[in-house]
């Protein structure tokens, strides 16, 4: 399973917990249009670190905060690739 599908599952999980209605996810959907708010993303980022050991935001290089769902997934794919090296 790719990290992309894990992330999609996690969006759904957090949306359910936080009583948010998740929009159908697509690559160019804006994160702010997913139906999730910043608290949801804070939780998602924390769980991704817990489950996969990935924390792209604390990496040495400065990262721009992702704008779309695709940006978000690519950020983690990049982090996973570095971690696998």
């Amino acid at each position: 399973m790719s990290i992309g599908s894990d992330i999609a599952a996690l969006f759904a999980e957090v949306a359910r917990e936080q009583h948010k209605t998740l929009s159908p996810l697509s690559d160019d959907l804006g994160l702010l249009d997913t139906g999730l708010d910043s608290l949801c993303f804070a939780i998602i980022v924390a769980r991704l670190e817990d489950r996969f050991g990935l924390d792209p935001f604390s990496a040495e290089e400065e990262v721009d905060f992702p704008v779309t769902v695709g940006d978000f997934i690519r950020l983690y794919e990049h982090a996973a690739a570095i971690a696998a090296e």
Binding site: S38, L39, F41, A42, I43, V45, A46, F57, S58, F65
Partner: peptide
């Protein structure tokens, strides 16, 4: 508190 790049902190 746990640091969060999104909200500054979250509670755990």
């Amino acid at each position: 508190a746990r640091k969060s790049p999104i909200t500054g902190a979250i509670v755990v």
